[in-house]
């Protein structure tokens, strides 16, 4: 699963599965310290492995900083630091 912030490039490269979020460079999983956002993206990417068709670009459409996230059920992880 390839996370991407640039859909036109993902459409050219055609990786097996992609998850597109139009977020700034350097932030494919979201903002620093936002564990719920990071886990939401991770959950979508990993479970997207099962639902994406060959070459499909999944696009959940989550906005940058104007979205409220909850930790996916069962994914309450502790942080090392």
């Amino acid at each position: 699963m390839c996370l991407t912030s640039l859909k036109p490039i993902a459409e050219q490269v055609r990786s097996p599965r992609s998850l597109y979020l139009a977020w700034p460079f350097g932030h494919p999983l979201g903002e620093p310290g936002n564990l719920a956002q990071q886990l939401t993206v991770l959950h979508a990417a990993l479970y997207g492995l099962y639902i994406a068709e060959p070459g499909e670009i999944l696009a959940p459409g989550w906005r940058w900083r104007r979205e409220s996230y909850t930790i996916p059920a069962g994914w309450e992880v502790s942080r090392d630091c």
Partner: peptide, 9 residues
């Protein structure tokens, strides 16, 4: 973790 989620994984 926002780019390299080694710890989370």
């Amino acid at each position: 973790n926002i780019l390299f989620p080694r710890e989370l994984l």
